[in-house]
Amino acid sequence: MMPVSAFRIFFQTGAWLILAFLVLPLLVVIPVSLTDTSYIGLPKEHLSMQHYVNYFSDTEWLHATWSSIWIGLVVATCAAVLGTAFAIGCWFLSDRASAIARWVLITPILVPPVVQSLGFYRFWVHLGLIDTSFGVILAHTLLALPYVSISVFAALVNLDRNIPRAARSLGASVWQTVMAVVVPAAKPGILTGFIFAFIVSFDEIVGVLFITVRRVTTLPKKIWEGIQDNIDPTIAAVATLLVLLTLLITAITALRRTS
């Protein structure tokens, strides 16, 4: 075996240190969430579950969590349906006009969040959508569409154009071809897009701050307000639950990929 060079040691240790910088800060919320104090800090005398009890018995926190979940699911469904149809249409067309349409659909990735939220606010006031769940769902669906369209389109890159052509020449209608040939090929992309869309909605904060007042509260908004007003360790408990959930899902997908 070759002796390990300084070059290699530099990159290898560097990479692990940087990964530690990336991941360890996420874990600090765990000890803090178990604190026995009523402020943010490490546990003083013993570990305590009081902040978890507080989260699970506080109707405001639970209500906000539930709002985020159901809004996220509706958004993911709408964005997945609209975005899949869009990407499939563009894939068939593959001309200049459809390329422009694809650029139009990804503008929400490029426009700064505050700027688009101002736009939403003014328009939603006109439409009477301020502080309604529908208003939030509509805004989030628009923000999620780019991700669905990108991932569905990426899944279709490998689809042989002769297959739908064959289906058509054997007498299938456009609709039948799309449903029986193209959608199955796009399935992995649709699933990725659905998950992306859910997360975009579940994490979105700036838009919600602008277009909701009091009636609609999502989890990020509740966390945001908690950080602004008084830093209550309940936020650390919520953060821990979310980080552990993410950790679990990442671990499961990583294991499934290796096996």
Binding site: C90, V104, L105, Q116, F120, F123, L142, L145
Partner: peptide, 18 residues
């Protein structure tokens, strides 16, 4: 017609407000 729904709501509810 597949492209239209997503493109329309993006133009009406996003591009126009911006």
């Amino acid at each position: 017609m597949l492209v239209a729904p997503a493109l329309t709501i993006m133009i009406v509810f996003y591009i126009l407000p911006v």
